[in-house]
Simulated assay, not measured.
Amino acid sequence: MVDVNQRVILLVEDNPDDELLTLRALRRSNFHNPVIVVRDGAEALDYLFVQGRHAERDPDIRPQVVLLDLHLPRLDGLEVLRRLRAHERTRTLPVVVLTSSNEERDLVESYQLGVNSFVHKPVDVTAFFEAVRQLGMYWLVLNELPPPRSS
Protein backbone atom coordinates (compact mmCIF):
# COMPACT_ATOMS: atom_id res chain seq x y z
CA MET A 1 0.00 0.00 0.00
CA VAL A 2 1.25 3.47 -0.89
CA ASP A 3 1.40 6.13 1.85
CA VAL A 4 0.17 9.61 0.83
CA ASN A 5 3.39 11.07 2.27
CA GLN A 6 5.65 9.01 0.01
CA ARG A 7 7.06 10.60 -3.10
CA VAL A 8 5.46 8.47 -5.80
CA ILE A 9 6.74 8.31 -9.37
CA LEU A 10 4.30 7.74 -12.22
CA LEU A 11 6.10 6.03 -15.10
CA VAL A 12 4.16 6.16 -18.38
CA GLU A 13 6.01 3.70 -20.59
CA ASP A 14 4.80 1.11 -23.09
CA ASN A 15 8.19 -0.49 -23.81
CA PRO A 16 8.85 -3.30 -21.27
CA ASP A 17 12.63 -3.04 -21.77
CA ASP A 18 12.64 0.70 -21.05
CA GLU A 19 10.34 0.14 -18.07
CA LEU A 20 12.73 -2.45 -16.64
CA LEU A 21 15.77 -0.24 -17.27
CA THR A 22 14.11 2.72 -15.56
CA LEU A 23 13.10 0.67 -12.53
CA ARG A 24 16.61 -0.82 -12.26
CA ALA A 25 18.22 2.59 -12.59
CA LEU A 26 16.06 3.97 -9.78
CA ARG A 27 16.89 1.02 -7.50
CA ARG A 28 20.63 1.21 -8.27
CA SER A 29 20.53 4.90 -7.43
CA ASN A 30 18.96 4.00 -4.07
CA PHE A 31 15.59 5.54 -4.83
CA HIS A 32 13.05 3.26 -3.20
CA ASN A 33 10.04 5.41 -3.94
CA PRO A 34 6.91 3.65 -5.07
CA VAL A 35 6.71 3.57 -8.86
CA ILE A 36 3.31 3.29 -10.48
CA VAL A 37 3.64 2.02 -14.06
CA VAL A 38 1.00 2.62 -16.69
CA ARG A 39 1.48 1.52 -20.28
CA ASP A 40 -0.53 3.96 -22.37
CA GLY A 41 -1.72 7.53 -22.35
CA ALA A 42 -5.35 6.74 -21.59
CA GLU A 43 -4.37 4.75 -18.50
CA ALA A 44 -2.08 7.61 -17.40
CA LEU A 45 -5.05 9.98 -17.48
CA ASP A 46 -7.23 7.44 -15.67
CA TYR A 47 -4.61 7.21 -12.91
CA LEU A 48 -4.06 10.97 -12.62
CA PHE A 49 -7.76 11.86 -12.74
CA VAL A 50 -8.75 8.90 -10.49
CA GLN A 51 -11.17 7.39 -12.99
CA GLY A 52 -11.70 4.22 -15.03
CA ARG A 53 -9.74 1.27 -13.68
CA HIS A 54 -7.99 3.63 -11.22
CA ALA A 55 -11.24 5.09 -9.82
CA GLU A 56 -10.77 3.28 -6.51
CA ARG A 57 -7.24 4.52 -5.78
CA ASP A 58 -6.55 7.09 -3.07
CA PRO A 59 -6.95 10.50 -4.75
CA ASP A 60 -4.64 12.08 -2.15
CA ILE A 61 -1.67 10.18 -3.58
CA ARG A 62 -0.22 12.65 -6.04
CA PRO A 63 2.90 11.74 -8.00
CA GLN A 64 6.01 13.74 -7.20
CA VAL A 65 6.89 13.47 -10.87
CA VAL A 66 5.50 11.90 -14.04
CA LEU A 67 8.04 10.30 -16.38
CA LEU A 68 6.22 10.41 -19.69
CA ASP A 69 7.14 8.67 -22.93
CA LEU A 70 5.79 10.34 -26.06
CA HIS A 71 5.08 7.42 -28.37
CA LEU A 72 2.32 5.58 -26.54
CA PRO A 73 -0.64 3.47 -27.60
CA ARG A 74 -4.22 4.78 -27.38
CA LEU A 75 -3.22 8.35 -26.54
CA ASP A 76 0.23 9.82 -27.20
CA GLY A 77 2.33 11.63 -24.62
CA LEU A 78 1.74 15.07 -26.11
CA GLU A 79 -2.02 14.65 -25.79
CA VAL A 80 -1.56 13.43 -22.20
CA LEU A 81 0.48 16.54 -21.46
CA ARG A 82 -2.09 18.78 -23.16
CA ARG A 83 -4.88 17.36 -21.00
CA LEU A 84 -2.84 17.56 -17.79
CA ARG A 85 -2.06 21.22 -18.33
CA ALA A 86 -5.70 22.01 -19.18
CA HIS A 87 -6.99 20.74 -15.84
CA GLU A 88 -6.64 22.73 -12.61
CA ARG A 89 -5.88 19.63 -10.54
CA THR A 90 -2.87 18.55 -12.64
CA ARG A 91 -1.68 21.85 -14.11
CA THR A 92 1.31 22.14 -11.74
CA LEU A 93 2.21 18.45 -11.66
CA PRO A 94 5.88 18.01 -12.67
CA VAL A 95 6.14 16.16 -15.96
CA VAL A 96 9.42 14.98 -17.48
CA VAL A 97 9.28 13.72 -21.04
CA LEU A 98 11.65 10.74 -21.17
CA THR A 99 11.71 9.65 -24.78
CA SER A 100 13.78 8.17 -27.57
CA SER A 101 12.34 10.76 -29.98
CA ASN A 102 14.89 12.97 -31.68
CA GLU A 103 12.21 15.01 -33.43
CA GLU A 104 12.64 18.74 -32.86
CA ARG A 105 8.88 19.23 -33.14
CA ASP A 106 8.35 16.84 -30.17
CA LEU A 107 10.79 18.89 -28.10
CA VAL A 108 9.24 22.23 -29.10
CA GLU A 109 5.64 21.08 -28.67
CA SER A 110 6.41 19.50 -25.29
CA TYR A 111 7.68 22.83 -23.98
CA GLN A 112 4.80 24.73 -25.59
CA LEU A 113 2.43 22.42 -23.71
CA GLY A 114 4.20 23.06 -20.39
CA VAL A 115 6.55 20.13 -19.84
CA ASN A 116 9.02 20.72 -17.01
CA SER A 117 11.88 18.86 -18.64
CA PHE A 118 12.62 16.97 -21.86
CA VAL A 119 15.20 14.16 -21.72
CA HIS A 120 16.34 11.89 -24.53
CA LYS A 121 16.69 8.28 -23.41
CA PRO A 122 20.38 7.51 -23.80
CA VAL A 123 21.04 4.36 -25.82
CA ASP A 124 24.02 3.40 -23.64
CA VAL A 125 22.87 1.63 -20.46
CA THR A 126 25.40 3.38 -18.24
CA ALA A 127 24.36 6.78 -19.59
CA PHE A 128 20.69 5.84 -19.16
CA PHE A 129 21.27 4.87 -15.52
CA GLU A 130 23.08 8.16 -14.90
CA ALA A 131 20.30 10.18 -16.54
CA VAL A 132 17.67 8.46 -14.36
CA ARG A 133 19.85 8.96 -11.25
CA GLN A 134 20.08 12.69 -11.95
CA LEU A 135 16.35 12.93 -12.66
CA GLY A 136 15.60 11.14 -9.41
CA MET A 137 17.96 13.32 -7.40
CA TYR A 138 16.38 16.51 -8.68
CA TRP A 139 12.68 15.59 -8.81
CA LEU A 140 12.53 13.32 -5.74
CA VAL A 141 15.03 14.96 -3.39
CA LEU A 142 15.57 18.61 -4.31
CA ASN A 143 12.34 19.76 -5.93
CA GLU A 144 9.41 21.00 -3.82
CA LEU A 145 5.85 20.79 -5.09
CA PRO A 146 3.11 23.32 -4.47
CA PRO A 147 0.17 22.01 -2.47
CA PRO A 148 -2.40 20.07 -4.51
CA ARG A 149 -5.37 21.97 -5.86
CA SER A 150 -8.85 20.66 -5.50
CA SER A 151 -10.69 19.39 -8.56
Results as ranks from 00 to 15, higher is better:
Thr90His: 03
Val95Cys: 07
Asp14Gly: 12
Gln6Cys: 03
Asp17Lys: 09
Trp139Asn: 01
Val115Asn: 04
Phe49Leu: 07
Leu48Cys: 05
Leu21Arg: 11
Pro148Ser: 05
Ile9Gln: 01
Asp14Trp: 07
Leu11Ile: 03
Asp124Ser: 12
Val35Pro: 03
Ser100Ala: 14
Leu145Arg: 13
Glu104Ile: 09
Asn33Gln: 15
His71Ile: 11
Ser110Lys: 12
Asp106Ala: 00
Met1Glu: 10
Val65Phe: 03
Ser101Pro: 04
Tyr111Leu: 10
Leu81Gln: 05
Val12Pro: 00
Val96Asp: 02
Ser150His: 07
Tyr111Met: 11
Pro94Asn: 13
Arg105Cys: 09
Val50Gly: 02
Leu26Lys: 15
Arg149Lys: 14
Ser151Glu: 06
Arg83Thr: 06
Phe118Cys: 07
Gln112His: 12
Phe31Gln: 03
Asp46Gln: 15
Leu98Asp: 00
Arg133Ser: 09
Pro94Tyr: 04
His32Asn: 15
Arg53Trp: 02
Leu142Ser: 13
Pro147Lys: 13
Val65Pro: 02
Val119Trp: 01
Asp18Trp: 06
Arg39Asn: 13
His87Cys: 10
Arg27Leu: 11
Ser101Lys: 04
Arg62Met: 14
Glu144Arg: 15
Arg133Met: 09
Arg105Val: 14
Ser117Trp: 05
Gly77Leu: 03
Arg28Glu: 11
Leu20Lys: 10
